Simulated assay, not measured.
Amino acid sequence: MATVAGVGFSTNRNPREAGREAALKALEQKGIGVPDFVFVFASVGYDQQLLIQTIRGATGRAPLAGCSGEGIITQRVALETNFCVCVMTIKSDELHFLGTHVTHIAHESDYGGERLAAEIRPWLGADTIGCFLFIDGLIFDFDPFKASLERCLPGGNELRLFGGLAADNWVSRRTYQYHDDEVFSEGISCVHMSGSGRIACGINHGCVPIGTKHVITRSKGNVIYEIDGIPVLELLKDYVEGDWESQWNKISLNLCLGFRAPESIKEEYGDLVVRYMMGKDDRQGCVMIQSDVRAGTELWIVRRDKELIRNGLVAISDRIKQQTGNRQPKFVMQFECMGRGKVVFREQEKNDLITTLQQRIGQDVPWIGFYTYGEIGPVSRYNCLHNFTAVVTAVY
């Protein structure tokens, strides 16, 4: 049997109908029967509990993991609507999946890193391939989480992490994570994958700096208070036109912060690491990002570039094909920043780009993904968080 995967999706507004349709399509494609594992990504218009309950029932109550997103991605489909769900069902005698979760991570200084390490430590072995993580994107700080997780695991940074930060539809109010029957927020859904397989990964952000170099002059953890001695929100006025205070969502999706990439990843990744400004405090004039930063750090204001995004997707496919050789992937998971979808490209243009990427990697490969509030993928053996980025993982 080896590995068989099927994918289905639905845009039905009824959560029962949508969940059942997506699940049955995934099962019918390959005649899978009762799957070994199920991945689910959905937008937040649905009653999330009812949706997951329906999918669990339709898939024989197989173990399940996933999260909410700003939209979904499957073969030849890239949807950004309030009502869309995609399901991947997997049956395999060579790959093994174990799921777990932690909740209430916003109340911990390490955002659940130590607790997650305790959960997955017994599973780690020579046949471990990696972990997929689906994490609340509204409250997460990657650096303390990563440091704690790696400190508490044997081999630490040898465990490769892939995944995305759960999203909602631009409202930044509440995201959802899924583990079996449970639907929760402020948590992590984790899947450990082991067996006889590998993961090829391609990553690209497609952003360019604008204006001059700046320096952070006051910060704490993942909060930046001042740049060049000026409150951050004051400095951003130089980069926007009109009433920027009433257009924060638009501004934060068009402008982000670029930091010098560490030497350890620069050759593979490029000169800048991009960070999305996930929140702000008008009273203090500060912004929050999803990793820690110190005073004295240099940065640039950056924006997306359409041509770089197009070229970057070609580079992703080339990198994955280089790693897989002539072997066709068993399945692909794509974690795409919501700032690289409909806010940049027309609908047809966006779908053409996704379709071209899929054709270059494998036209008939089972493919599932979602539009995220942040992407996770290793660069040069270092686990990294990314923003305004595509992370494409091919299991082969």
Rank of each mutant, 00 (worst) to 15 (best):
T59V: 12
A106K: 13
V77L: 13
E70R: 14
I72D: 06
L236S: 14
L165K: 01
V274I: 15
T3A: 03
A65E: 01
G285T: 05
G57Q: 13
L353F: 02
V344E: 14
D243M: 08
I210W: 07
K350M: 14
G112S: 12
L308E: 15
V102G: 07
S317Y: 00
C384L: 03
Q323L: 10
F39H: 06
W123C: 11
Q53P: 02
I135M: 14
L124A: 01
F142D: 14
C67R: 02
G221P: 10
G33Q: 09
H205D: 10
V395G: 01
I105S: 12
L138A: 06
F142R: 13
V87Q: 06
F9Y: 12
R160L: 11
L51T: 06
D281F: 05
L51F: 04
E263S: 12
G195P: 01
A78W: 05
G258Q: 12
W123M: 14
G221N: 13
T217Y: 07
A126T: 07
K250N: 13
N157W: 11
A126H: 06
T89L: 00
P154I: 11
I361C: 09
E268F: 00
L149C: 09
R198W: 00
E21G: 04
M333S: 00
M333R: 03
T356P: 00
S172T: 01
